[in-house]
Nucleic acid binder design. Structure first.
Lengths: 168, 168
DNA sequence: TTGAACTTTCAAAATATATTGAAAGTTTAT
DNA sequence: ATAAACTTTCAATATATTTTGAAAGTTCAA
């Protein structure tokens, strides 16, 4: 397989996986492109390479920076902005986990906390089922939250070392 | 807060979380409804309760059964089908992890394996960056895969006990 | 200042995804 | 064999999301 073809396949696969996990396909593709490119790219080059419009490229790059996955670079003596992706897989995973926790998990936990407090008739099965389900999910969510918290602070080697020890 | 209102909020929150994670909003809502309902419900009742059409309810229930989250029940002497959701949070989490692994992670690993094999000029930075990125992601993906595999076989208490020990 | 080089915005258009509902299909009791 | 009770299908429709591209905005060198 040619390198060019392989890059293409990687970008496609990453885009598909992203869209299955609630991440805009284009955003995942731009990220993939930057991941397999050694040097920083301009908006122009990204547009060209993925056949997307200027507006789309601009918004997507802004989002990627918001996720902490891509950063702007300025080359001395040039007006153009260059974009570069961190290529450390562990950093990427941490960054994504961090953002999704903040944006999605935390708000849900807040709601579950509220719903756990709802009072009702203990002899009512409808109430009992509701209460048990909500408090159980709340517990799980908080466990995940705490686990992520520790993971985000951890060093890669330490983390995988520990995981491997447990799951053996 | 009233129980009815609380149920409503739970269904909404679950639907939103689902859609953020690539799961059809209605599917998540039907699941949520069944989770907070002690007894099994008919298609009719679900349609009514969530204001969705018969076709939508039917397809969604079929999908939920495909995910192993909901099952049909038959009441003796009745023609109607009743639908019931397993309420064990750990089972739900395992089931979702299992299905997503099969449907999304495994296919990606297959592609990454192929792409890892691509040969190229070692003095070419484009090739080096591609190769390093792909093999790194492949390693991460396989670690996740292996971890899920073990987790899926694990008992709840054992699992959380271990996790708590490590992340302490 | 001016204008060239570049970036950002956002309403409109395109695309993708989800939903409807009526017709077709199936099952079962009689 | 019939028909009532129920389930499934799927083309048409509706909704949600993504993308475009041209215009407006910004920056900077001369």
């Amino acid at each position: 397989m040619e390198l060019a073809e392989a890059k293409q396949k990687f970008i496609e696969a990453w885009g598909k996986l992203g869209s299955e996990w609630g991440i805009n396909r284009t955003m995942a593709q731009v990220h993939a492109l930057l991941l397999v490119t050694p040097e920083a790219l301009t908006t122009e080059e990204i547009m060209e390479s993925l056949s997307i419009s200027r507006g789309n490229a601009n918004m997507t790059l802004r989002d990627l920076m918001g996720w902490g996955l891509v950063e702007k670079q300025h080359k001395p003596g040039e007006r153009k902005e260059y974009f570069y992706a961190d290529k450390d897989t562990w950093n990427i995973a941490r960054q994504v986990a961090k953002e999704r926790r903040k944006r999605e998990l935390d708000p849900v936990i807040k709601i579950l906390d509220e719903l756990s407090k709802v009072q009702g008739d203990v002899s009512d099965p409808a109430y009992n089922t509701f209460n048990r389900t909500v408090t159980d999910i709340n517990k799980l969510a908080k466990n995940v939250d705490k686990t992520l918290d520790t993971m985000l602070k951890a060093e890669e080697s330490w983390f995988w070392g520990s995981i491997v020890k447990i799951f053996k």
